[in-house]
């Protein structure tokens, strides 16, 4: 792999807090190595801003290995940037070339209010989980782990859904700011497993009610969420969610 350096112009969304209107500002960044991660490139800019007496760009990040789900950002119109199945922290500067202009915006959705600059509040996701995204089993109640054999394919499918990192890229990508992919991943993870079956009906009904309450839009099946999901969560999960919701509504009391 050939390494190279590049000079770029960043057009970054700056917003002091949730009450501020926000605007774009442009910053040149020079001598960026193709081996850097995207966030390391922003680190470079921030170090310069601080040294020059400016205000560094606030952004969320933590594990920087693509699993915690904390990093966000919409890069040139794409949540988590141009690479498929990649979080912003795993995006590397090889994806860009010298002279590029990169527009960086926060995840935009009314349900994700901006905290500052590129950092947003995704507490709505926690509240959706609180509304039913669990299996009710107190510590100490469990039987032996092998007492309940689970079809391997089923377990694998549940795992694929459980791989969701709760980053919110699906919401950011959706033209309706819908959280259906996030929701459906959790509903699928739990309802595919026999342990999750007893609470299947209330779970889906309560979680959808909470999603609607939080101010997310509804799903119009454009599947942009699937295309942008850094963990490749499939929209088949949304179909399953729809089916379960309809089933719960028709058979519920």
């Amino acid at each position: 792999m050939q390494h190279y350096t590049m000079n770029l112009t960043l057009k970054v969304w700056r917003q002091r807090n949730n009450k501020d209107a926000g605007r774009f500002e442009s910053y040149p960044v020079n001598n960026i190595s193709s081996e850097m991660s995207f966030l390391e490139m922003i680190d470079v800019l921030n170090e310069k801003l601080i040294t020059d007496g400016g205000d560094p760009i606030a952004f969320d990040h933590d594990c920087r290995e693509g699993i915690c789900g904390m990093c966000s950002m919409v890069i040139n119109g794409r949540p988590h940037g141009p690479w498929e199945e990649t979080t912003t922290c795993q995006l590397h500067m090889r994806a860009f070339k010298d002279g590029d202009m990169i527009t960086i915006e926060p995840f935009r959705a009314n349900a994700f209010p901006v905290v500052k600059d590129l950092a947003v509040n995704r507490g709505a996701f926690d509240r959706i989980i609180q509304s039913g995204g669990f299996i009710s089993v107190n510590t100490g109640n469990a039987v032996d782990g092998n007492s309940l054999p689970i079809d391997k394919d089923m377990a694998d499918e549940a795992f694929a859904a459980a791989a969701c990192i709760g980053c919110g890229a699906c919401v950011a990508a959706c033209k309706n700011a819908s959280a259906m992919l996030f929701l459906s991943a959790k509903v699928s993870h739990l309802s595919l497993l026999p342990q999750g079956k007893p609470e299947k009906k209330q779970r889906v009904v309560n979680m959808i009610a909470q999603m609607d309450k939080e101010g997310f839009g509804s799903c119009t099946n454009t599947y942009a969420c699937e295309a942008e999901c850094p963990k490749g969560i499939s929209v088949v999960n949304i179909a399953r969610l729809n089916r379960e919701y309809l089933g719960a509504s028709l058979s519920g009391d």
Binding site: I135, A155, F159, L193, Q195
Partner: peptide, 20 residues
């Protein structure tokens, strides 16, 4: 007990074809 607890919570551990 940890494994039992986690399985009960729905942690999708890797399984063999026999389901174990």
């Amino acid at each position: 007990s940890i494994i039992d607890q986690c399985v009960a919570q729905g942690v999708p551990f890797a399984r063999e074809y026999g389901g174990l």
